Computed example of a mutant assay.
Amino acid sequence: MTMQTWFITGVNSGFGRELAEQLLSRGDRVAGTVRRKGSVDDLQAEYGDRFWVGHLDVTDLPRIREVMDAAFSDLGRIDVVVINAGYGLFGAAEEFTDEQVVHQITTNLIGSIQTARAALPRLRAQGGGRVIQISSVAGLAAHAGASLYHASKWGVEGCMEALAQEVAPFGIEVTLVEPGGARTSFSSSSLQLGEPLAAYDGTPAAMVRVFGHTRVPVPGDPVKVAAKVIDSAAQKPAPMRLVLGSDSYQGVTVALRGRLAQVEPQQASAAETDAGT
């Protein structure tokens, strides 16, 4: 197997950490980013020069390009860019502060866009590569109590689907990964709740409050999820979407069928607004 070089944002925990560990253990090189210095010292000690680490908070938008350029300059070529850093903000839309809203969108959506944009000139110059965006079932299905998280992930979905068409002529392929719930540290370290408003007590939006004090059982195995993501990088052509988890498959298919059921009966009335009708 030919050694590849991967760039992964957010390798200190969750899917990012699992991806880095599996890739390094099989002999690949990894350029990983962390917000907290020292959080991956164990991997650096074990893998040495094969593990390049950059300090990055993706809300620091100018820093994204600095870190990306440094990784390409130091490593020469990067075959796969994994955009993974992000977190979940849950609660009713009016339970958040303005600062929380901006931070969620900046981290999950704008940070993802800017990471891809920083990588594209380098990938074009080297004649191709792969961009893998970690999205979520929440990018295709929506539920009360997650409106801002959905806003960030739905934005990512549209951006990356269009981006895939834009960069295909340059040999760059794009995959959106759609995991369901997985047994990572997401619920303890990457999940934030808005300040509850009494008006929402007992409503569907309040259901997410359980995340704050109860560990919700989820089916996904992060080891298996990471392995599937790694395997997808070798698929030709790249899958546009990689659905991982039985809960994700169910959530996505129910949502898409529901949308079709809303739209299809409107075929005739939609045409009534065409010019000349």
Rank of each mutant, 00 (worst) to 15 (best):
Met1Ala: 14
Thr2Trp: 01
Gln4Met: 14
Thr5Leu: 03
Thr5Pro: 10
Val11Glu: 02
Val11Met: 06
Asn12Met: 02
Asn12Phe: 00
Ser13Tyr: 01
Gly14Glu: 04
Gly16Val: 10
Gly16Thr: 13
Arg17Met: 06
Glu18Leu: 11
Leu19Trp: 08
Ala20Ile: 04
Arg26Pro: 11
Arg29Pro: 00
Gly32Ile: 09
Gly38Pro: 02
Ala45Glu: 14
Tyr47Gly: 03
Gly48Thr: 06
Asp49Pro: 07
Asp49Tyr: 00
Trp52Pro: 08
Trp52Ala: 11
Asp60Glu: 14
Asp60Thr: 07
Leu61Gly: 00
Pro62Leu: 09
Arg65Tyr: 06
Val67Ser: 01
Val67Gly: 04
Ala70Thr: 15
Ala71Trp: 04
Ser73Val: 07
Leu75Gln: 11
Gly76Tyr: 12
Asp79Arg: 03
Val80Ala: 05
Asn84Pro: 08
Leu89Pro: 00
Ala92Asn: 10
Phe96Gly: 00
Thr97Trp: 09
Gln100Asp: 15
Thr106His: 04
Leu109Met: 15
Gln114Val: 08
Ala116Asp: 07
Arg117Tyr: 07
Arg117Asp: 09
Ala118Arg: 01
Arg122Thr: 01
Leu123Thr: 03
Leu123Ser: 03
Arg124Gln: 12
Arg124Val: 10
Val131Glu: 00
Ile134Asn: 12
Ile134Tyr: 08
Ala142Trp: 10
Ala142Glu: 14
Ala142Asn: 13
His143Thr: 15
Ala144Trp: 06
Gly145Asn: 02
Ala146Glu: 15
Leu148Lys: 04
His150Gln: 13
Gly155Tyr: 03
Val156Asp: 04
Glu157His: 06
Ala162Gly: 15
Ala164Tyr: 01
Gln165Ser: 13
Glu166Trp: 04
Pro169Cys: 06
Val174Leu: 08
Val177Ala: 03
Val177Phe: 03
Gly180Tyr: 06
Gln192Ile: 08
Gln192Lys: 13
Glu195His: 09
Leu197Gln: 13
Leu197Glu: 03
Ala199Met: 11
Tyr200Ala: 03
Ala206Lys: 05
Met207Thr: 15
Gly212Asp: 12
His213Ser: 15
Thr214Leu: 11
Val216Tyr: 07
Pro217Cys: 08
Val218Asn: 06
Pro219Lys: 12
Asp221Ile: 06
Val225Arg: 00
Ala226Val: 05
Val229Ser: 07
Ser232Asp: 05
Ala238Cys: 09
Met240Lys: 14
Arg241Ser: 06
Val243His: 01
Leu244Cys: 04
Gln250Trp: 10
Gln250Val: 14
Val252Arg: 14
Leu260Tyr: 12
Glu264Gly: 00
Gln267Val: 13
Ala268Trp: 09
Ser269Pro: 01
Thr273Gly: 07
Asp274Leu: 13
